[in-house]
Amino acid sequence: MTRVQLTDAEWEFIGPYLPIGQYGPYPERLRQQFEGVIWRFKTGGQWREMPQEFGAWATVSNRFRQWRDAGVFEALLEGLIAEAAKRGEVDLSLVSIDSTTARAHHDAAGMHLDEDVLTA
């Protein structure tokens, strides 16, 4: 089993990004649940395979979806970039922009068009 445990400094940075609603989650379990999310993506294991130390797998899975839908991970990434920029540790030469690929319909393979259609 891959051990996932945040340092106190890491948690101090991450914790404020995680929303606490009126009816949960219990703040003392947030760190445990966040570590469960990290475990899931670090190991590639299934939610149901999650060790009990992170709490019930269904709860951690639901929490992940709530955080994803609330934009927590995007905000956390932006916060990390801003923190690195404050320290002068952002190297824009490493920035990459990904493009979207649009697949052609399978009928488009080998299709022959008249010259007047191509010029139009």
Rank of each mutant, 00 (worst) to 15 (best):
T101L: 15
W39I: 01
R48G: 04
E12L: 09
W47C: 02
R3H: 14
E83H: 09
F73A: 04
A109F: 12
Q33V: 00
P16T: 07
L18T: 05
T100E: 14
R68V: 00
G88R: 11
E74G: 01
G110A: 00
L18N: 01
F64Q: 04
N62W: 08
A75N: 13
R68F: 12
Q46P: 01
L76R: 08
P19N: 03
H112S: 07
D91S: 06
D69L: 06
G79S: 07
G24C: 05
Y17W: 11
V72I: 07
R48D: 02
Q5E: 12
Y17Q: 06
G71S: 06
G79L: 08
G24Y: 10
G45M: 09
K42F: 11
E89R: 14
V95M: 15
G45N: 06
D107R: 14
R103C: 02
H112E: 09
A70S: 08
F13P: 02
R103Y: 13
A84M: 10
P16S: 09
R68D: 14
M1F: 04
A56M: 06
A84C: 07
R29C: 03
M50C: 06
A102I: 14
L76I: 02
G15P: 00
G21L: 10
S93M: 08
I14V: 13
T2I: 12
N62Q: 15
L77W: 07
G88W: 09
A102L: 14
A58G: 08
A9W: 08
E74V: 03
S61Q: 14
T7F: 10
K42M: 05
R40N: 05
G24V: 03
S96H: 15
T2S: 15
A84F: 09
D98C: 04
S93P: 02
E10C: 08
A84K: 14
G44N: 05
G88Y: 07
K42G: 03
H106P: 14
Q52P: 06
V117S: 12
R68C: 00
A84Q: 13
V60L: 05
D8L: 11
T59P: 01
I97M: 10
T101S: 08
P25I: 02
E78T: 11
L113S: 04
T2V: 13
D98F: 09
A9M: 00
G88Q: 03
L77P: 02
T100Y: 15
I38C: 13
A84L: 13
R31Q: 15
Y17V: 00
D114S: 08
Q33F: 11
Q32Y: 00
W11Q: 06
D116Q: 11
Q46I: 05
E115I: 13
Y17T: 05
F41Y: 15
H106C: 02
E35L: 04
R48M: 05
L94V: 08
G24N: 10
T2D: 14
I14W: 09
R65G: 04
H112G: 04
